[in-house]
Structures are given as structure tokens and as C-alpha cells.
């Protein structure tokens, strides 16, 4: 039974029945040509006005809003009587969207337990990858200043202290415990990728970046890995719920589809085959 109650589809059916019953009660003694203005109508109009304007409408304003309400209700009922809601693309989409909202809300209220989350984390570990973290010094050589920044960098590498060489750029020389993702923003993706091949504790050969050429000295490197579960638990929960939502939506449509017979009355053609394949 526990499993059954956790199943959103079950609740969906329950709610469907609830809504039906509610409207059954609500509409039981309402005839089609009567528009009732009672306190609940006034309340709703007043409340909306209050929400928008942070004050109650004056008597005059309220009366004219009620007039708008009546006009609208008349047109709305006439439109329903004329079946104008049928086959209206806009209304169809809106109704379908309402169903999706209900199903999304359902999924959101089903709390996943720790074991669900752990299993999800293990299965989708690649999402929780932690980039390598570097403490490094970079010396910059500008293509704007030299015929070959590469050659100048190679030459600088031969000097006693390459730290004293190089050109000016408005980026730090020293980066302290900075992730490869952040370094990629400053220097470009190819530079961040190249760092992985540079040995720790010695000056690198010249490295190209999106800005020019660099000599790099990596002092410390924390290898790429995975964030531990406890650190990303909230994110795992979001991801889990997101995926469950998608799954539930397609499951819901599939189960509802069971109630309908889809007749494809199109002569043999590519489009017919393509449609049938999707069904």
C-alpha cells in the first residue's frame, strides 16, 4: 500500500474524481441563464483589486468592475453555448497546460527518501563532477607586442626566474585554489584543458590561451573528482525531482492514452508511417 500511495498516478485519479464531484455539487442547482452576483463574486473582485493596487476599490469602482464581470460572463456563456471553446487552439493548449501543472505539483509533493537520492547520485555521477583545482602562477606573453610570443616565452623559460619575465595583462599572475572552470573563463577552454597535462612543481613549456602565450608553474593540483553526496544533496534532490517530473508526465500521457483509440485516417505515405511510429 505504501508504494501505491507514493505513486503520483493514483493521486491524479483521486484528484480528478474530487474535482468532478466538487463541480457536480457546485453546479447542481444553477440554471444556465442566471448570473449570480453574491458576496463571493464581490470578494473575488475586491481581492484581485487589492492584490494589484494595495487598497480596496471604492464603491463606484467595485460597481463598475461588477459590470465588467457581468458583461464578460454573458459573452463567455454565449460563447460556450455557441461551442466557441471547441477546437480553439488557445483553449486546448491552456487546458493541456493545466493538466501538466497538476501533474507537476503532484510529483513535487512526493518526497524522495535518502536511498532514492543516493541511487540517483550513483547512477548520474557524471553530473556531480568536480573540476580540478589549481594553485598556479602564469606569466603572459602578448601576441600584440611580439612577432612571436611563443619564441619570447621559450626564451624566458631559459632565464633564472621566469617570474620576472613576461608582459602585462589585467589578469592575476597568481591563482590560489581556483577551479579549472573559472580558469577557463579567464583564459579560454583550451588553456584550461592544457593545464591537465602540465607537471606539478616545475615551469611548463609555453602554453597557448585565448589571449596569447603563457608559462605556467603549478604549485598544487587537486585532481578532478566528484563532489561527495552530502555536499550536493540539494542539487541531487532537484535533479531527481526534475527527472521524476518528466517521467511522470510521459507515464501519465501513456496511461491516459489507453483510454483512447487513435485512428490514423491518412492514406499510406511517409507521414502516415512517421505518425504510426510515434504512437
Amino acid at each position: 500500500m505504501g508504494k501505491f500511495i507514493k505513486e503520483p498516478l493514483f493521486h491524479f485519479i483521486l484528484i480528478g474524481a474530487g474535482i468532478f464531484f466538487f463541480y457536480f455539487l457546485l453546479n447542481k442547482d444553477k440554471s444556465g441563464d442566471e448570473i449570480v452576483i453574491d458576496n463571493s463574486v464581490l470578494y473575488e473582485i475586491t481581492e484581485k483589486y487589492q492584490m494589484q493596487w494595495n487598497r480596496k476599490p471604492t464603491t463606484e469602482e467595485l460597481a463598475s468592475l461588477v459590470q465588467v464581470y457581468i458583461d464578460q460572463e454573458v459573452l463567455y456563456r454565449e460563447a460556450l453555448a455557441m461551442n466557441l471553446d471547441h477546437n480553439d487552439e488557445v483553449i486546448k493548449r491552456r487546458m493541456a497546460q493545466k493538466m501538466e501543472f497538476i501533474s507537476d505539483e503532484l510529483v513535487a509533493t512526493v518526497e524522495p527518501d535518502q536511498s532514492d537520492l543516493l541511487a540517483y547520485y550513483e547512477k548520474n555521477k557524471s553530473i556531480y563532477k568536480k573540476p580540478a583545482v589549481y594553485t598556479l602562477t602564469q606569466i603572459y606573453f602578448s601576441n600584440d607586442l611580439h612577432q612571436s610570443a611563443w619564441d619570447v616565452a621559450s626564451h624566458a623559460l631559459q632565464q633564472a626566474d621566469p617570474r620576472l619575465e613576461g608582459d602585462r595583462i589585467s589578469l592575476p599572475k597568481k591563482y590560489d585554489k581556483v577551479g579549472a572552470d573559472k580558469l577557463a573563463l579567464d583564459f579560454g577552454s583550451s588553456f584550461a584543458a592544457a593545464l591537465d597535462t602540465i607537471p606539478v612543481g616545475e615551469w611548463s613549456d609555453p602554453v597557448r590561451s585565448g589571449l596569447g602565450v603563457h608559462l605556467v608553474y603549478i604549485e598544487l593540483k587537486e585532481l578532478e573528482g566528484f563532489f561527495p553526496f552530502d555536499q550536493v544533496k540539494e542539487k541531487v534532490k532537484n535533479d531527481f525531482n526534475y527527472e521524476e517530473g518528466l517521467k511522470f508526465r510521459s507515464k501519465l500521457i501513456k496511461s491516459l492514452l489507453g483510454k483512447y483509440k487513435i485512428e490514423v485516417q491518412i492514406p499510406e505515405s511517409d507521414i502516415r508511417n512517421a505518425i504510426l511510429e510515434n504512437i
Binding site: G18, F22, F101, I102, E105
Partner: peptide
């Protein structure tokens, strides 16, 4: 389920 029915009614 109760709160969901309520919210379902709101949505409806």
C-alpha cells in the same frame, strides 16, 4: 491528497 485536491481545485 487532501491538499492536492484543494490545489487541484484552485488550478481548475
Amino acid at each position: 491528497a487532501y491538499s492536492l485536491i484543494i490545489s487541484g481545485l484552485i488550478m481548475a
